[in-house]
């Protein structure tokens, strides 16, 4: 039976399966990622304190959003192994994220939350 169960689906399978479990980084690598994440979180928290509070609002939004996205991507890519795993997981997850962003942003647009329409 096993000879029938070979991978035969090239349109979905990107060949990463074989090395799925070899590419996983070392513990030290994970610790480094966590340190970077902690550092970004520190910056985020830092924006809260008075000294930076006088910065223009758009700059605050820009910096915070940027750091949020970077942290999001790092956890997804390294801790959740999306970087090493098969492309299908990435597609399914990103489909959900993109769809969520699109529909809810459109909803906000329809609510005239961004100042036009």
């Amino acid at each position: 039976m096993t000879d029938l169960a070979v991978n035969h689906d090239s349109d979905l399978h990107d060949g990463s399966h074989d090395d799925e479990h070899h590419d996983h980084p070392s513990d030290w690598f994970y610790i480094k990622i966590a340190l970077i994440l902690a550092f970004f979180t520190l910056i985020e928290v830092g924006t809260y304190f008075e000294s930076v509070h006088n910065a223009p609002e758009w700059a605050m939004y820009a910096v915070l959003t940027f750091l949020m996205v970077v942290k999001f991507v790092m956890v997804g890519a390294y801790f959740m192994h999306l970087k090493y795993d098969t492309v299908m997981f990435r597609r399914v997850f990103i489909a959900g994220i993109v769809l969520a962003i699109v529909v809810y942003v459109i909803m906000f647009l329809a609510y005239n939350r961004f100042g036009f329409a």
């Binding site: 991978n7 689906d9 399978h13 399966h17 098969t86 299908m88 399914v92 997850f93 959900g96 769809l99």
Partner: peptide, 18 residues
């Protein structure tokens, strides 16, 4: 696909959670 059913299930579920 060579992908484990259980792992695919979790990812599909997480896509929905978004």
């Amino acid at each position: 696909t060579g992908i484990s059913n259980n792992k695919l299930m979790m990812w599909v579920f997480l896509g929905s959670e978004c």
